[in-house]
């Protein structure tokens, strides 16, 4: 006997067709008048109303397309340390560092190819300045393929929430 196989003991008298059919029909008829669970997607978004199955919200751990955080002056927090292209398993981050007159490093070019990205979230984990983040965001449709290479300006102008990568109430993932 394979492990986990549950053998149901069916009572002999319930091997019935007429009663089972009627029971099934009553069930399907009842369902016709129950609350519909369909979420009308483009109109109703993830944080929408109650659908009879509890409120559906996107997880704060969701790892979607990236966002670069900026400081008070609107410059990106990135110091072009090169850790994120180093750790990226998909090799999708292109970083060319530059140096300003005060000797601070900043990214001359910072591009993420979202098609190559595997959304592992390592870039966010490794970032010492908490600059690059994966976002809680899933609507990414575009009309052309090259729009999926996000440059620094685009990454900085994103406004969606950023991922927490782990559940704050359950930090060990238990």
């Amino acid at each position: 006997m394979a492990i986990g196989v549950k053998i149901l003991k069916r009572p002999e008298r319930e091997v019935s067709y007429v009663r089972a059919t009627l029971k099934g029909m009553a069930l399907t008829f009842k369902h016709m008048f129950e609350k519909k669970v369909t979420m009308q997607y483009p109109e109703e978004k993830s944080t929408g109303s109650d659908h009879g199955m509890g409120q559906w919200t996107i997880s704060p751990r969701w790892r979607g397309t990236h966002r670069m955080l900026t400081d008070e002056q609107g410059r990106s927090k990135c110091v072009a340390c090169g850790l994120c292209p180093q750790i990226c398993p998909a090799n999708c981050i292109k970083l060319v560092p530059g140096e300003d007159e005060r000797g601070d490093r900043y990214p001359l070019i910072y591009e993420i190819d979202e098609f190559r990205c595997v959304f592992c979230g390592y870039c966010q984990e490794v970032c010492p300045e908490e600059a690059i983040h994966v976002g809680v965001h899933y609507e990414n449709a575009e009309y052309s393929r090259d729009r999926f290479v996000y440059d620094l300006e685009r990454l900085s102008s994103q406004t969606h929430a950023v991922s927490t990568l782990w559940d704050p109430t359950d930090p060990k993932g238990e």
């Binding site: 069916r10 002999e12 091997v15 019935s16 067709y17 007429v18 009663r19």
Partner: peptide, 16 residues
Amino acid sequence: VFGLLDSGIFIKGSAR
């Protein structure tokens, strides 16, 4: 008829 059909004599269920 429904008594007979329902008792599963003519068409047997898998368990039986």
